[in-house]
Amino acid sequence: MSTQEISLEELRQRQSRFRGLEAGHRACLGCGQALAARWVLEAAGPDVVVANATGCLEVFTTPWPESAWRVPWLHSLFENTGAVAAGLEAALKVQGKTAKALAFAGDGGTFDIGFQALSGLLEREHDVLYVCYDNEGYMNTGVQRSGSTPHAAATTTSPAGRARLGKRHLKKDILAIIASHHIAYAATASIAYPEDLKRKVRQALLITGPTFLHLHAPCPLGWGHDGSLSVEVARLAVQTGLFPLIEMERGQVIGVMPLRTIRPVADYLKLQGRFGHLFRDDPRAREELEHLQALADHNIEVFNLRADRPDPADSEGADTVRRGRRRF
């Protein structure tokens, strides 16, 4: 069958994947969150109900009367996603329905304003997969710093100037906090590793009870890089050790994606405008660069990310290329 024999509309209907998030949404070019959300639903399938926090994902998918969602979806407020999802789950449970409740929120809605509802959700052991799309700032409101913004990153409320070089504080270690709730599964994932991401979604959905996925999803606008670089930037975040891909069960690390080739943090930082001030000729900038390198090294050490030698079983964690049966 070729494009002469089938219209694009029809072809779109016949894609061999679950289309939970449809085209026509208004995300920026190269939006990491749009990618991540689509993959989460691809992995989760149609038997879900989604509670979505206020934020880019909500705004760019649902300008009335349009919706990009093909799953039942509810946006209530910014800070209550954990609680709304808990309500969905309680209702599904009472009705004996098999559908799984998902909670989608950004880093602001997770690390900061929605943290209490999330903590309650985990503590009460609702059967909900909570997905945090982490783009490290309040991007929807115009790139303000959040508890997830990395140290030294410039945002509109932590700008780089003569006296200060971006955010003074550290990125909140949300996974450690989540892990302290003793939940059955919590993991990080990145849009640079879609198969790993989808596997973790499926893994989480196998579990009855609260699970948490922390997805690193670059924001070209807020991070100051070209949209075409979103996956590259995400990949470098992993390969530098700044965003380790790990899995935790009951608070214990049970798996990490080993890094065969560890890249210096500068490779990651220099692609992004928000770290541009770290590359100026200034001893404090150099100090901050060293600081970020030390944070990456710390992750590598703490999570034992270093892969000693090529191992055929680990494909560098990479989503290595799938080779089509029939090719052009």
Partner: peptide, 13 residues
């Protein structure tokens, strides 16, 4: 805040 949010989610579901 969560009480109201839970009943919202539940009633919608």
């Amino acid at each position: 805040h969560s009480a109201a949010s839970v009943v919202l989610g539940a009633a919608a579901a």
